[in-house]
Design a protein around this nucleic acid. Structure first.
Lengths: 216, 216
DNA sequence: AGTAAGTTGCACTAGATAGTGCATTAATAT
DNA sequence: ATATTAATGCACTATCTAGTGCAACTTACT
């Protein structure tokens, strides 16, 4: 994927064009959707000639795929933070740790690009079914797998009673952000108190999770 | 909305055309999206002349709104069933009652039209933000409100301990169908075991809900 | 410098689509 | 039967879009 994959370095002009195009394309695709975006729009957003878009990316579909290939960053970064949660919570404050994770998860989703990315992918499930499934595996799927591992560690350490860590991970995720994500998908732009509401939901979700999964 | 709203009955030819068009339009919009659907497609699916579509509905947007106006039936029917759940569960089997509600909710969503409808609306949040918000209030919002009432009744009867019934309703909904709905949105067509998995999720979600909201 | 490679602008093909106008035909109501 | 109203078919406008070909210009490598 990077320029080091090829034996020789890429012409800096192409590299610059490519970066500008994929960035501009991300912007317009997320705003206007796949069909709603013309290559003219992309070129304008990228500050590049229309013809250059075709020179660099070939066609619209390839460009679309390039945009979505980088759409998993948020999930990857959250998963990395999750992986660092130690099994033996230092001061025994499981609730505090999980609440922090829940808030963090909420922040990752509300107000960021996750919701527009999801809308974009979902609107093209019919045209590009592979992209949607792929994204799901690499973004929410990654978070779910990492969450299951973290919970399994907490279970092993006796901080939680969650024999089915995968299921418990689903419950954690949907208790904390389910409602905020679901609602957010239907709102063109977030209301003023959206972040605060998402935090409250995350906290009360974590508390419900702890009641359901407290060690015996 | 019905023909009785106007003083005189509607010409049966218009009524027939209208029904055929809205039904055909529902089919093609759900399959191909708003932009991906031409009036030709609608006319063909409805078995009606292209020109008739324009005569009856005026333009594409009006037709789209007509289609989505009837998209809340599934939620209404689920809410009606919910409203019938008595506060004092006869044989004291709260778990059985809630598991039945959870399975029912899962069935309402997995494999039905809810997922295509959501995809369609979400892909047009930018163009028709009012439709998305409207739908949310009338469908999932209705279910949430009804769920909150039902849980409040169960709380009052001592069958649950859920002082914040609205929050508890969110938790019930997302524990039972959160994961199935979220995953289902990204799948072009459901795998063979999808319904069974959704049922398992619903049941384990209800059990987690009961651990979190058991009466003290 | 000079060569190679990328960028740009412009013209052009080819196809799709929303919506209108109008005359003809068919169904409905009285 | 007759008058009304709707459905139909067809031509037509206007617009938009993906993608290509090509010549002129500019930037990068040696």
């Amino acid at each position: 994927m990077t320029r080091h994959d090829t034996a020789t370095a890429e012409d800096p002009r192409i590299a610059r064009s490519r970066a500008a195009i994929v960035s501009g394309a991300t912007e317009v695709f997320l705003t206007n959707g796949y069909e709603g975006t013309s290559i003219d729009d992309v070129a304008a957003a990228a500050g590049v000639a229309r013809r250059t878009v075709y020179n660099v990316y070939g066609d619209k579909e390839a460009l679309f795929r390039a945009v979505l290939a980088q759409a998993t960053e948020i999930a990857e970064s959250y998963a990395a933070r999750l992986a660092n949660v130690p099994a033996d919570v230092d001061d025994g404050d499981v609730e505090g740790t999980l609440i922090a994770l829940g808030r963090d998860l909420a922040d990752s989703i509300v107000g960021g690009r996750v919701i527009p990315i999801r809308r974009l992918l979902l609107s093209e499930v019919g045209r590009f079914p592979d992209l949607a499934v792929d994204y799901y595996e690499r973004a929410p799927g990654l978070v779910m797998r990492t969450l299951a591992k973290t919970i399994a560690r907490l279970h092993a350490a006796g901080a939680l009673h969650a024999p089915d860590a995968e299921r418990a991970g689903e419950h954690f995720a949907f208790l904390t952000i389910g409602a905020s994500l679901d609602r957010g998908m239907f709102e063109a732009e977030l209301g003023p108190g959206a972040a605060a509401v998402a935090h409250e939901r995350a906290e009360s979700g974590v508390r419900a999770f702890l009641r359901a999964y407290a060690p015996k």
